[in-house]
Amino acid sequence: MYRTISFSICIFSCVVCVFVPAQAQVHADKDSTTYYGVASYYGSRFNGQLTTNGDTFDARYFTAASNILPMDQYVLVTNLRNRRKTVVRINDRMAAGNKRLIDVSEAVARRLGFRARGLTRVKVQLIPAWMINWFDLAALDSMQHTDDMK
């Protein structure tokens, strides 16, 4: 009997772990510059389409879509599974019913190590405007362009 109960609890836990992240709600810290939620990615089938801010989407660039984060904001995205980080620019919006925090390009998903998985829990931190001046953003964009899309 105990084995049956333990097995049932194990199965339930596995189901919860698999299905809950896709439905997870976005959580923001008190300072509203750090957000926690689920990230997904959109791939090269959207290449050439216009984004909300008028850019042409390219899956090789480090860009993202979000309904919560400010448009044209640079953010630091951290994959909470493996602690990989990268800087991306928000240049698009997601579908209205999408409950995820961020939808990143395929290049970002590769860099963060979740392309094969499709979804991951992330921490997203807004990069303050005064700090952006410290970066050469044109160089940052060109450095993060990946030609190894397969």
Rank of each mutant, 00 (worst) to 15 (best):
S142W: 08
Y42E: 01
T86D: 15
S105L: 01
G48Q: 02
R3A: 10
M1I: 09
A96D: 12
N53I: 15
V104I: 07
M1Y: 10
N53A: 06
N91Q: 04
R45I: 12
D31R: 09
I11Q: 07
G97S: 09
S13Q: 06
T78Y: 06
D31T: 13
N79D: 10
F7S: 14
L50G: 12
L76F: 00
H27P: 06
Y61H: 12
I5P: 04
T34Y: 08
R115F: 11
N82L: 03
T51W: 01
T34N: 13
N82G: 06
D136P: 06
F7I: 13
T120F: 00
A22S: 14
A139N: 12
V75A: 00
A109G: 06
Q73I: 03
K99Y: 05
N79Q: 02
D103P: 06
A39E: 01
H27E: 15
N67M: 00
S44K: 13
A28I: 07
N67E: 01
N133R: 14
H145A: 07
D147M: 08
K30H: 10
F62G: 02
V88P: 14
V15D: 02
Y35T: 08
M94L: 08
S13E: 03
F19T: 15
V77Q: 03
F46I: 00
A107T: 11
S8Q: 10
R121T: 13
H27G: 05
S44F: 09
G43N: 02
M143W: 11
V75H: 01
Q144K: 05
M149C: 10
L137S: 11
V122G: 01
D136M: 02
L76G: 01
C17S: 14
N47Y: 02
A64I: 05
R100N: 06
R121V: 10
I90M: 00
I102C: 09
L101K: 05
A129N: 14
R121S: 14
D148C: 08
T33N: 14
Y2V: 08
F114V: 04
I102L: 07
F19Q: 11
V18G: 04
G54M: 00
L69V: 07
R100D: 02
N67Q: 02
G43A: 00
G118D: 04
V38T: 15
T34K: 11
F19H: 11
G97K: 13
G54H: 00
L119S: 03
F12M: 14
Y2M: 11
Y35W: 11
Y35K: 06
A65L: 01
D92G: 07
T63F: 04
A96C: 06
V88C: 06
C10K: 10
V38L: 11
T56D: 00
A107E: 03
T52I: 03
S66R: 09
S32C: 08
T63C: 04
L119M: 09
Y2Q: 12
V77H: 04
Q23F: 13
S40K: 02
R83T: 10
S142V: 06
P21W: 05
D92A: 05
K150P: 12
S6E: 12
T33L: 15
K150M: 10
A109N: 05
T4Q: 14
R110M: 10
T33P: 04
G48W: 03
M149E: 09
A65T: 07
K85S: 12
D92S: 07
D147A: 10
S32I: 08
V15W: 06
